[in-house]
């Protein structure tokens, strides 16, 4: 499904991504772990095209997407949610989701028909709202929504495009335990054929949902394996899991 091949990125002399390679099978749930500054978000930016790699290639379903723009990749089925909320702030929840659904369905340039009244778009909006538990808040202006709801909407926008590959950048960042549980349920309820790549700091959640885990450090893949293998790996423990081991 996704084949990342020797991906590298440097800002001037600063190497932030070094020869990163990994493969995702369709339907796989992959969690990316790594300390702050390990280059996780940079990796996402490279995958969706917001940054251009200095070397390496990205293939989706066998075709290289390296030369494609952000919007082209999105139309290929790549969708991404952000660590910092990146919403349409002056619109309502429904309008946020509708823009995403309409864009993904290519209903963006009709001069006469209204995409907001299109049945296909509405279905995708309701589906996404259901998944992120925002059905009751659809007509709330984003400005009036709580931080937790905005986090849900952040993921909802990505889902409303009905992606094939979903990249979630710390969906639980800054939210409380009950909300984390909500995201946990959300991840479990996602369609099985959807491939998901998540950057996540909450260990319980990460180990529970992940099929495999990739650990980044200093921009490099230092480990890849199943959750069980990850728990037992001394390298991973050294650079990252010290805190977690104590908690457990």
């Amino acid at each position: 499904m996704l084949d990342v091949h020797n991906l590298s990125k440097a800002f001037g002399g600063l190497q932030v991504t070094r020869n990163v390679s990994f493969k995702l099978e369709q339907g796989e749930r992959r969690v990316i772990l790594g300390p702050n500054g390990a280059g996780k978000t940079t990796l996402f930016n490279l995958l969706v095209g917001e940054l251009k790699p200095t070397a390496g290639d990205i293939l989706v379903g066998g075709t290289s997407i390296s030369g494609m723009s952000v919007s082209q990749r999105s139309r290929m089925g790549l969708s991404r949610s952000y660590q910092k909320n990146n919403l349409f702030e002056d619109l309502t929840v429904r309008e946020n989701l509708t823009l995403a659904a309409a864009a993904a369905q290519g209903k963006i340039a009709w001069l006469v028909k209204d995409s907001f009244r299109d049945r296909g778009v509405k279905e995708a909006v309701e589906e996404a709202a259901e998944l992120v538990s925002l059905t009751d808040l659809l007509d709330t202006p984003v400005k009036a929504a709580s931080y937790g709801n905005r986090r849900q909407l952040e993921v909802g926008i990505a889902l409303a495009t009905r992606p094939k590959l979903l990249l979630m950048d710390e969906p639980t960042s800054g939210v409380g335990p009950s909300m984390i549980e909500g995201f946990h349920r959300l991840l479990k309820s996602l369609p099985e054929e959807l491939t998901v790549l998540i950057i996540e700091h909450d260990m319980d959640l990460a180990f529970d949902v992940a099929d495999r885990i990739t650990v980044l450090n200093f921009g490099e893949v230092v480990f890849e394996g199943t959750p069980d293998e990850t728990r037992g790996n001394p390298v991973v423990r050294d650079i990252y899991l010290g805190d977690w081991q104590q908690d457990a």
Binding site: S71, Q72, S74, L87, L91, A104
Partner: peptide, 13 residues
């Protein structure tokens, strides 16, 4: 409202 996000959801802005 948010041009970068529009690109991210697939619009050639």
């Amino acid at each position: 409202s948010n041009e970068p996000r529009m690109r991210a959801i697939g619009v050639s802005t």
